[in-house]
Computed example of a mutant assay.
Amino acid sequence: MAKRIDSPCVSICRLKGGLCVGCGRTTEEITRWPSMKRPERMKTHQRAAQRLKKLKKD
């Protein structure tokens, strides 16, 4: 298991409905990322991936 969890940012920073269309994170999650602990980052990654799937379906 990796110790470090990298940001899901893919440098497509465009917001649509409060979500980044590049990484699927909310503006709050993007802002808080640097101060998040590992478990919170893992959950954020999971939620962001689910959001991206939904965005791509729409």
Rank of each mutant, 00 (worst) to 15 (best):
T44S: 10
K56W: 03
K54Y: 06
R41S: 02
E40P: 03
C23Y: 00
K3V: 15
K3H: 11
A2N: 09
G18V: 07
R41T: 03
G17F: 02
C20V: 01
A48W: 08
K56T: 02
L55P: 02
M1N: 11
E28F: 13
C23T: 02
Q50S: 14
K54W: 08
C23E: 03
P8S: 12
C13W: 05
M42C: 10
L15V: 15
D6E: 14
K56G: 01
G22Y: 00
R4T: 15
M1A: 09
K16W: 04
Q50L: 14
R38E: 11
I30M: 15
R32V: 06
K54C: 06
R25Q: 01
G17Q: 06
A48T: 05
R32H: 11
K57L: 04
E28A: 12
C9M: 07
C20L: 01
T26F: 06
D6S: 15
R4M: 13
Q50I: 10
G24Y: 00
D58L: 11
C13N: 07
E40Q: 10
A2I: 13
R32I: 03
I30V: 14
L19E: 00
T44E: 06
K43R: 11
S7L: 00
K3P: 08
T31R: 15
H45T: 06
E29C: 09
L55H: 06
T31K: 15
G24D: 00
E28T: 14
E28I: 11
C9F: 08
K16N: 07
T31Y: 11
R41K: 13
S11Y: 14
C23Q: 04
I5M: 06
P8G: 12
A49Q: 10
M1E: 12
L52R: 02
T44W: 06
L19I: 05
H45V: 12
G17A: 04
M36Y: 13
T27V: 11
R38P: 03
R51D: 10
K16G: 02
C9N: 08
R25W: 00
M1V: 04
C9Y: 11
H45Q: 07
G24T: 00
V10M: 09
M36G: 00
S11R: 14
P39C: 09
Q50F: 08
E29Q: 12
E29G: 09
K37S: 11
R41N: 04
S35N: 09
A49K: 08
R25F: 00
